[in-house]
Design a protein around this nucleic acid. Structure first.
Lengths: 243, 243
DNA sequence: AAGTGGTCTAGACCACTTT
DNA sequence: AAGTGGTCTAGACCACTTT
């Protein structure tokens, strides 16, 4: 009687099989671009039901190692590219430069007078109220962030045309009558919920960056507040630790 | 003949069912801490096989909405807390302050002479070579980052005792004979691979922050390089955009 | 002992792609 | 038409928790 290493182990079959497949990919036995054996062939090879193989392959898929395509086969993916096109601003002045040639496409989502969210740890709200613009930024047809901008109402009304058509930060930075005395930004790492996943073409739970920016005038009043959600794979931050 | 809305739809049953369950949780029909009906009960209610219900529940589990426990039942989770304890440095000087009272526990992983990775976009390598220390940082028993530190050999040898026992950055910053002329840091958002997931107590694919720090002396030689992988949920960055 | 979720089977049928 | 992955069933058995 031959021993059966898979069945003698207490670990679930699909975990054992996913481990074997992961190992083979790591060792380059199946190289990027090549096909895995078919589900049926793997089921035969390891003497399990097809659905058990699928369970194993699904794990590798969630890890981004393989891409099954119906009617086509399951290909091994190239390791994720580290080239990330988007730099999140860490200096306001840099922003103006970075968008001089490369303007993102703006897709409106929502627009109207709103009050500021209550959980701000910085600045004091403006008495006149705020106008909110919610929109998406796209480049080369790929949406990479969703931004909700709150603008102090007097400023919004005065520069409404430009603020609707362009990125808000450069406008505020450029206009000589606007006084920016403080500008802070926080970044946390979050996961896409169902709505965000749909808008950013992600899967639920995929990493995103939650960025909040607040700009205040000389009196400490908030003239601009923005909540931005970036696709995680587009985020690149570069900081000078001595500045 | 009654219509069957589930089966008349072209969407897969498990997706439809996960949608129904998600909705009920969102509306508070099942509140945090309460149990979902059993898999068997849901299978009966929607007239599907138990494994199809499991497929639906698994999706909600991956979204962090529910926690199935074998032999116990499936409970609705409270929405994830937003309290995030750790601040990633954006100024070297801040770092020294932030660790004055609160020193993380250091868990060694690897140690020895190594050469620098080749893909550095900043500074020039030191002729004498480098010593690498790889270790984990923990607080309250929870490991929150894995760090690989490369130290220019002469500096490492001179301050070996402190560098082994303490955080490296404050040591370099404190010691009067060490000249830090440039200090840059980049942050990208990544996902945990199988090894990182095990070390940081995450699941494969969970968000992490990949941070690279480089410190140079006055001649532009790299005296310190570190690759740090943080748990995504511990990352909090606060930046001054006008600095 | 009874009840819960977790894994697995063998087979059916479907959706999609390639030949 | 043939081949691929995707979904689903009905039922079995298992691991774990609670009674």
């Amino acid at each position: 009687m031959k021993g059966d290493p898979l069945r003698d182990s207490r670990a679930p079959l699909y975990l054992q099989i996913s481990g074997i497949l992961r190992e083979k990919i790591a060792r380059g036995i199946w190289k990027p671009g090549e096909f895995l054996p078919t589900v049926a062939a793997l089921a035969e090879e390891y003497q399990v039901a097809r659905i058990t193989v699928r369970q194993a392959v699904k794990l590798l898929q969630e890890e981004g190692l393989v891409a099954p395509r119906r009617g086509h086969g399951t290909t091994v993916l190239t390791p994720p590219e580290k080239a990330r096109p988007l730099n999140v601003v860490t200096r306001l002045a840099d922003l103006v430069d970075s968008y001089r040639d490369d303007k993102p496409e703006l897709v409106p989502l929502e627009d109207g007078e709103r009050s500021l969210p209550g959980d701000l740890h910085f600045g004091t709200p403006f008495d006149e109220g705020y106008h909110m613009i919610r929109r998406m930024h796209a480049r080369d047809g790929q949406i990479y962030c969703i931004i909700s901008i709150y603008l102090a109402l007097p400023i919004f009304l005065k520069h409404e045309t430009r603020l609707r058509a362009e990125l808000a930060l450069p406008v505020l930075f450029d206009e000589p009558d606007i006084d920016i005395a403080k500008a802070r930004q926080t970044l946390q790492i979050g996961r896409a919920g169902i709505e965000i996943a749909n808008l950013l073409d992600l899967k639920i739970g995929d990493p995103v960056a939650d960025v909040r920016r607040i700009l205040c005038d000389g009196s400490g009043s908030i003239i601009y507040m923005a909540d931005v959600i970036y696709r995680g794979d587009y985020v690149h931050l570069d900081m000078d630790l001595l500045a």
